[in-house]
Design a protein around this nucleic acid. Sequence first.
DNA 1: CTGTTAGCGCGTTCAA
DNA 2: TTGAACGCGCTAACAG
Lengths: 341, 341
Amino acid sequence: MSLEVGLKDVALRAGVSPATASNALSGTRPVAEETKRRVFAVAEELNYRPNLVARGLRRQETRTIALLVADIANPYYPAVARAIHDRIGAHGYVSFIGNTDGDPKAEVRVLEEMRSRSVDGVIMSTMALSPERIRDVVGPTTPLVLITGEWVETPKHEIRKLRADEVGTDDAMGIREAVEHLRSNGVTDIGYVSGPRGSVPGAGRLERFRDAMRDLGLPVNDAWIEHADGYTLETGYDAADQLLSRIDRPTAIMCANDLIAIGVLEAARDNQLAVPDDLAVIGFDDIPTAKHVSPRLTTIINPATLVGYACADALMRRIDRPDTPYEHTALPTHLVARGTA
Amino acid sequence: MSLEVGLKDVALRAGVSPATASNALSGTRPVAEETKRRVFAVAEELNYRPNLVARGLRRQETRTIALLVADIANPYYPAVARAIHDRIGAHGYVSFIGNTDGDPKAEVRVLEEMRSRSVDGVIMSTMALSPERIRDVVGPTTPLVLITGEWVETPKHEIRKLRADEVGTDDAMGIREAVEHLRSNGVTDIGYVSGPRGSVPGAGRLERFRDAMRDLGLPVNDAWIEHADGYTLETGYDAADQLLSRIDRPTAIMCANDLIAIGVLEAARDNQLAVPDDLAVIGFDDIPTAKHVSPRLTTIINPATLVGYACADALMRRIDRPDTPYEHTALPTHLVARGTA
DNA sequence: CTGTTAGCGCGTTCAA
DNA sequence: TTGAACGCGCTAACAG
């Protein structure tokens, strides 16, 4: 897909030098009104489009960014990707998407591939690697935005050390709303299905759950806290099955994400438990499917589109002015009560 | 994200010329075993990575491709994107994703953007533009793969004229299985909710539906064929509502895609119709959500991953050998009977 | 205001 | 087998 007509051709036909044609089209330096008009006319006539590869080499800026996620086919990411895409597109940027499957080796490999391609910035959602290691791989100056489960975890001075902007969600808010909602319905025997031990979004949310329970004066039964082996429906099912086969079982289960929650729903059905009467279930994220399961899933809205916009804005800002202070953005999360709690 | 160490640095430290270093690393020309070893050692030591932008300019090949879809956030595409991504990644390619929202202006804009970026090939799923117009915009030689709803529509000589490979699904197969399935359950009053009039995947599937009905000796009632205003749950709901409020209503509804089918499911519920007893519903695509609605959606499997692989393979083949004959690939579709029919 | 020169980092001539 | 020189298409720096 090569461009057949180059700046040289435009310049020749407009009777100016390539440099002048360049200046006229990009407005870098002032060009006589009349000349500019001629250049533009010729450019249009020949359907000239600048070769962004050559421009990238010269300007040392490619107007591309890398978006790294665990798996673009996972239901939460496409919405984020779309939002980022729309936002950076308005600035003339396009994005490469990299899938890492949560594998640290893959993260390094993909990051180096992107470095090879001289992307102008990186947005990472997946983080098998520590932020320090990521900063190592991308080099000291690459604009970097981290999508974290929740920003509260990282103290401000850490962020500054990482030289990264961070976008996350205020999980505490939604989780507290969820616990309050359950309590106001008289259900206080609340269990929790988290993700794999030590995985990034899961750990924080579990802590927020503990905080909310404590703040609201509810006891946490550690036997009712289960770690799923992943963030999928199947692993959620298995974890719930474990939990529900106990003689003393919780009357509500909160989950680290919606997929796990849907798995819990299925486990409840298979254990002849009515939802929400025998067992209330609350998810996290509000993926599109949440509205289509039956009963509709009560969940905590993770504003994917807003997260995407915030990431894009943070990255554009840093590319524009590399010296602005590093920022966390925490988007609010809220409970949406539907049919399962 | 610039590379700080270049080929020059490697050459210098290895005591050879940049040309030799280049040849040693890429294997373009034979280099003395000993020299080669030294170059490789130094490259590793300095963590050298070739600048792919510079290489792209020089070789006139960027190892990037464009993937154009209507909306990456739509449930069917991410699976295709992931498959394409994995497959081309193995060949050292990465992809730009472009969203067109099914808008012809946007298609032209995005295609030109990609052309500016000298992508080595284009895979398009969305097609508001006619294939001829697409070929016009991308220029005569750009490797082009079209993802079509079904390949049967385009005669072979047309494809050759378009100089494009085409990947699609054999919709007739799955649709016939669906109609047979309904008939074997004794339901023959079958309606159909298609997409907007004239939209690409919808029109073909509706025709396949008519074919299957005719072949199986079932009458088609045109009053039971409704066109939704889009391919979404909401438009599907509205179309079904129309259909179900008739005094003579069908006892089964087949749909152009799963989202529409889920809308039909909701309309059935709101019309106090039991699924599948009062109304059988069959979707198309088998998006992840299909398994999670209740009852689980009976649908026709559109093998997204296989479609992605086929697209990637076709594109890689054409980039490799531009003169091979143009091909259609038709992936089989099959009914998966779950709870709604 | 405009043209000329040079070089971004590679890969490919051509000559040794 | 290796090195020197040039150019991919564009734009920054320097003259004029």
